[in-house]
């Protein structure tokens, strides 16, 4: 499985309140939430994001609340992968559980710039910045998490057991 798209770049500690502000949490509908994704730090995101695009951020992406609405909003906005130096742990779980591909890679997170065209190969963990020609090796998931991801999320994984 591969993801390929243009990059939206953010810094450290992107929290779930800016990914999807609580004033929109009265709806659990992913497509509704996606309309307001990243609104409080980047009003252009929703206008410019295209299917397959990639978010790249620095450390502790997704810190704060446990709202699954955050990875859901990102997924439903069309984002194919989030690359970060590190992820906050609840966001990490939630992304795996709902089938939003994420990958930890400090080198890629620091080197990739906004607007670059990036390809991620989930089987090998290789991240390629097609704009600069650089490539990076991301942190592979433990086998157990790979099973959840390849099942398409935790619900399917449990159904298969």
């Amino acid at each position: 499985m591969k993801a390929c798209g243009h990059v939206f770049k953010y810094g450290d500690n992107v929290d779930t309140d800016v990914i999807i502000p609580a004033r929109y949490l009265n709806s659990p509908d992913g497509n509704e939430l996606a309309k307001h994704c990243m609104e409080d730090i980047d009003q252009e995101f929703v206008k410019r994001v295209k299917q397959g695009d990639i978010i790249v951020a620095n450390k502790n992406f997704g810190c704060g609340s446990s709202r699954e609405h955050a990875p859901l909003a990102i997924k439903c906005a069309g984002v194919s992968c989030v690359i970060a130096e590190t992820f906050a742990r609840i966001f990490y779980r939630n992304a795996i559980n709902i089938g939003l591909p994420i990958i930890e890679c400090p080198e890629a997170a620091r080197a990739i710039s906004a607007g670059d065209e990036v390809e991620v190969d989930f089987d090998s963990g290789v991240i390629t910045d097609k704009t600069t020609g650089q490539s990076f090796k991301g942190q592979a998931f433990p086998e157990f998490m790979q099973k959840i991801i390849s099942a398409g999320g935790l619900v399917n994984y449990i159904n298969q057991k």
Binding site: S66, R93, N94, N97, L154, I158
Partner: peptide
Amino acid sequence: GVGSTDMAAGMV
């Protein structure tokens, strides 16, 4: 703390 899918799996 966990997300809603973990909660669903936990409830079942």
